[in-house]
Every structure is written in structure tokens, then in C-alpha cells.
Design a protein around this nucleic acid. Sequence first.
DNA 1: GGACAGAATGGTAGCGATAACAATCCGGAA
DNA 2: TTCCGGATTGTTATCGCTACCATTCTGTCC
Lengths: 355, 355
Amino acid sequence: MKNEDEPKDKRVKAADAQKLTMAEVAKYVGVSAMTVSRAFRQDASVSEETRKRIMEAVDALGYVLDLSAGSLSSRRSGFIAALVPSINNSNFSDTARGITDALENTGLQLLLGYTDYSAEKEERLIEAMLRRRPEGIILTGGSHTDRARRMLDKAGIPVVETWEIPEEPINHVVGFSNSEAMSLLVRALANQGYRRFGYIGGTTARDTRGSQRRSGFLKTVEELGLGPGRVISFGVPPITMEQGGQAVVSLLERWPDTEVVLCVSDLSAFGAIMECKRRGMNVPVDIAIAGFGDYEISSICHPSITTINVDCYGIGQQAAVRLLDAVHGGGSMGDEITLTGYKVVLRESTNRGGT
Amino acid sequence: MKNEDEPKDKRVKAADAQKLTMAEVAKYVGVSAMTVSRAFRQDASVSEETRKRIMEAVDALGYVLDLSAGSLSSRRSGFIAALVPSINNSNFSDTARGITDALENTGLQLLLGYTDYSAEKEERLIEAMLRRRPEGIILTGGSHTDRARRMLDKAGIPVVETWEIPEEPINHVVGFSNSEAMSLLVRALANQGYRRFGYIGGTTARDTRGSQRRSGFLKTVEELGLGPGRVISFGVPPITMEQGGQAVVSLLERWPDTEVVLCVSDLSAFGAIMECKRRGMNVPVDIAIAGFGDYEISSICHPSITTINVDCYGIGQQAAVRLLDAVHGGGSMGDEITLTGYKVVLRESTNRGGT
DNA sequence: GGACAGAATGGTAGCGATAACAATCCGGAA
DNA sequence: TTCCGGATTGTTATCGCTACCATTCTGTCC
């Protein structure tokens, strides 16, 4: 059935390839373009025999489907957009991995962007993403510019906000209360007998999750009658390991009798612990230190670091699953909140008895 | 000049918005769609006055450009594809960040995928990416399946391979010799007087950079007359911090007099150091340990970790810049090799005098 | 034997933008 | 005044695919 008056070699030059179209594949096989299009989808009704012949031709010619044309026609872009504050933070890259994994074999492609913890950059990214007509979008946190909210609203696609519980959710939320999680950690440590609490975090409110953790800390220390909490703000969020080290020095200079220091993340906690050891202090005997996020480093570090374990991967995965439900359900989405778990992980760095 | 017989409210419902098209914006303003299209590009010739009116309408209506339609017509997708082994490894996420940053304000969008160190997954991802007709593609390493090579060849787009120097490069390369880098580290440590060298790496060749580092290690130890090198293979690459800890235990059980242990990455080195400390050993007095990659952790850790500093961010950035040159230069690309720097960073973990 | 259901395939008309070319307008030079 | 060139805007024809509907061809049932 092959088109014999236009013999094709198995090897086609790149120049040809660039303009190889579905119609040419169809001509080569001797069917219509429509049939070739159907052969690429599993649901369509094409006889096995025809599909096989088409796929052989696709292979021989080296044809690659053009989804940009397809999505224009079908009005389905096949994209899901996701914005995370940083791709270099393993908590968020775990979330990104959760999203990607959930999207595997769904035919959906992830468009990933990072906002650098900036609402303005988020706004620009949202616009850039919407130009690709994603079928859904996953955001981190609930702080967005007005224009961003308007654009999302008009786009009419399902939105999932993650990693925290916004005061005014857009659609669905997959996350947990950072404030309550930090509160749980404070109480757990107070239970162990700690009384004089310090806290290390960044200087601005850019990192809303960080701010929530701090306010959870302050509120709980107060509630337990142990206030006021001793807070050191150091560095633009997200604060680094090194800044954690510098901050703990400031904190101990100012309040030398501090018993336990909670940090906005494990990274700063690690930096703080290492700086203390470098200065000859014994953690946890001289000073106890805890983090947040349960990064890989915290279970390996010596001393291992007390922290809050958060289901980063699960946040991404569940957000994607919710979005898939909505996309397959016709683009509408219930405005529910999916709470993800967290738990205190007590380790050596806050062991009152010493290591 | 507004179209008065079809009054529009400033607020348009989401349902309307979804089908808002450039032609409707044009009608609203009283110009042709072509003029609206031009107004969105800075190079085009539209009078300032008209552009302003159009942009006001765009704002009022909440119109968002549809790039999927535009790219079909202009035959420029505006995508750059990049594949990294893992998004959770900070070395590669630094590279991804370098790419994204270089792409900012170029109007190009990054399509990011991770291969999980698998050539098969890479092949699937390459196909998925090519369906979006990227204008260029950045890969990690030089190991690709035959079909992947064929697809890339036929796609006729510039390809940049990164992070190593492939034996048979496809187009451009931005990277360094992992073997020579490791060799340099071995020599630096031999210079310090170390004689009995151990090595910790993964079990398979999936991670080609890891394999290259190992062979660089073995070759150099041999050349220095210090061979054979003591190699422990443990865990499927990329090996974790924890596996680094387990591996160093095996290594010291088998060769208790080992003086210095080189690890395939800083992460395993960190795990090894922490495990040693946990067992009461003093690093570097009892055993010296070095890593590869100069992750943030290595300068903060106590003891700080000797390693090879690699310009991860620069690799991504330069790869993107090369690709941009090629894209703007009409899609062709010289098959050059851009060598990126690396350097030995000697720190406490291999300090012969002790910390 | 004719009608008909169902499977497989084909034809046509867009999807929403842009390339390419045509048309219009304007002021200044001849 | 007339003509010309540059700036601005409009018209038309795709880009490569898929939705939608029409058509063909079986085999089955009464």
C-alpha cells in the first residue's frame, strides 16, 4: 500500500524532518491524515492492522507528533503549570517531583517556574504560564498580587494552592498550618523541660510560611507562659545554612542562657549546630537546636536534628491528583482543603540527656 | 473609537474570558487583529497611540495572549527543553537555575524534565519534549539511546550536552572532564602526604559522571604508584548520605588502614563523615574524607569538607547562552566544547594536622 | 433479501494567531 | 501641484492538527 512514486529512504535528512507532517505520513501509508491522528490516540477506533502500518511508517520516517498544532485544534494544551518559590530547596523540589510523578502517563506536561519568593515575579510567571493555556495551575502559598488573582479568576482553570492554608483560598488547597506545626514542636520541647526558647528566621515577610512559623512560635511560647520568645531575624528569606550559623551567634550573645533554639528550616538549624560545634559547644548539652522540614541532612547529621517532618512529596502529588480530577471532571473544582500531615521528629539535637 | 453597540463591562466572567480572542480585542478597539498582534511585540511598527489604546483594552477585557496559536503560525514554539538526571540534587537544580536565569527576558520558556539517571526515561522525555517543537535542547551527559540520538538528529535543533565531555558529542558541549577533576583531587591529597586511598561510589554505570570519577580515581592512584585503589560500590546511583555512611563502614572494615576516602559526591562524603563521628572517630585525624561537587553543606559542615568545586550554575547558564546564540543565529550551531572550570577546595576534612 | 447496527475511514472546516503582501496616509522634495 | 518614501494599518492565506459529520463496508437478524 505504500506510495511508490515517492520512494522514501529510511533515513531522512534533518531538513526534511523539520517539515514532516501528519499528512505526509498519511500519504505514505495510503490513509487519511485523520486516521493517522486517530492512530496516535488509544481511545480512537482504528483497526489494529492499520495502526500497526501507520506506526511502522512513523518509525521509518521518524515522524514526531506536533502537539502545538494538536492543542490548538483540540483546545487542550496538555500543560499543567506549577510555581514554587525555589527549585534549589529540596523541600520544594520534592514537591515538584511529586507533581511530575503524578502527571506521568497522563499525557500532561509540567510547566515549572520558580518565583524566588516574590509575589511580583509570581505575577509575571502566572501571566507567562497562562499564555500557554494550562489546564490547571499549582501555586505555593496564598499570597498573590491582585492582578495575579484576577488573571487566575478569568482564566477559568482549576487552581491549587499548596504548602499553607491561605486566608482566602482561590480554589482547592493542599497543605497544612505552618503556625500549628511550629506550635506542636514548641509544645513537644516544652514537654521535655525546655523553658527558655529562641527562634531564628528571616527578616522579611516574603516567605509567608516562615512568618507563619514564627508567629506560631511566639504565640505558643506566650501561651505556655514562657514568653516573650527570643527572636533573631537574620537574612533575606530563605536563609542559608551560613546565616543560620551567624544568627545563632547573635542569639547567644544577646541571650546567653537560651536553652533551645528553633529555626525556620533544617538548613539554618544545621548551620547553627555546626557553628556551635565549631565554637566548642556541645549540642544538645550546652544548647539544643531544632529545625523544620525534615530534610535528608537532619537524620544523617551528628547530632541528628529534631524537626517537623512535612510530606513535601505528598503535597505535590496530591495537588496534582486533585488537579487531574478537576481537569477530567470538566475543569471545575470543589473549593476544598486537603490537609497534609506533619509530625514532630525528636532527635539527638534536643536530647536533654545529651548525645 | 470603541465599539458601542456591544458594550463591555470592565469585569468579564470567566466563562467569557476563556474564549476571548485577539479578534475580539481588535473589534473592541476598532483595529484589525493584526494590529493587536503587532502591539504585543516591541519590534513591530504600531503607533504609540494605538498601542496604548490596545493595551488598555487588553487590560480592561483581561485578554491573555495565546502562544500556542502564535507558535503554530510563526513556527517558533518559544520553548527550550532541558533534561537533568534529578531535580532534587542541588548541583543539577543549580544548573536548572542557571538555564532559567539565562532565559529570562528572552521570551523563551523552559521545559524541564528529569531522567532519574535512566537513558530509557531520557528517550521518552526527549520524544515528549520534541512534540512541543522546542527550539533547542539541553541534555546532561553524553549517554543516550540510539533512538534518542536519531530523534535529536532528525529534529534539526541545536543540542547542548552538559556536565561531561562525551566521546561522541552531538553538537555543542558545556562541561568538564569528571575523570580529570577527580584525578586532580587525588594528586592534591597525595601531595599532602596521603598514601592509602579509598573510594566510595554507586554500583552501576547509570551515573556516567560517577563512573568517570571512579576511573579517574583508579587511574591516578595507579599512576602515582599507590594502587590498587580501594573501591567500595554501594547503592544505586545517585547514592544518598546514608549510603555514604554505610559504605565507609564497609570500607574501613575491609581496609582498616585506609588514610583517605574520596566519595563520588559531597552528599555521600557528608554521610561518611557523620557516620565516622558517630562511631567516635575523629575526621580528619583518624580518617580523612573528601567529596565532589562543593555543595553548600561542605563549607558549613564541621569539619568542613574537602571537595571539587564545580560551576553548576555556570554550566546551565552557559549552555543556555550557547543555545540562544544558535537559536538567534538561525538554528545552526558549531560543534564546540565549552570547558567549565573546577578546582580543588581543601578543607578541614583532609587536614593532616587535624582540625 | 433487505434493513440495519456498528466498526473503520474519509472530507471539511476550523482552532487563534502570524507571515507576507497590499493599501492607505502623510509630509516633504521636485 | 505631483510624486515618492516611510510609517502605519488592513487583508488573505496558511500553520498542522483534530472535531464533527458523512460515508463505506461488513456481517447479522428477521
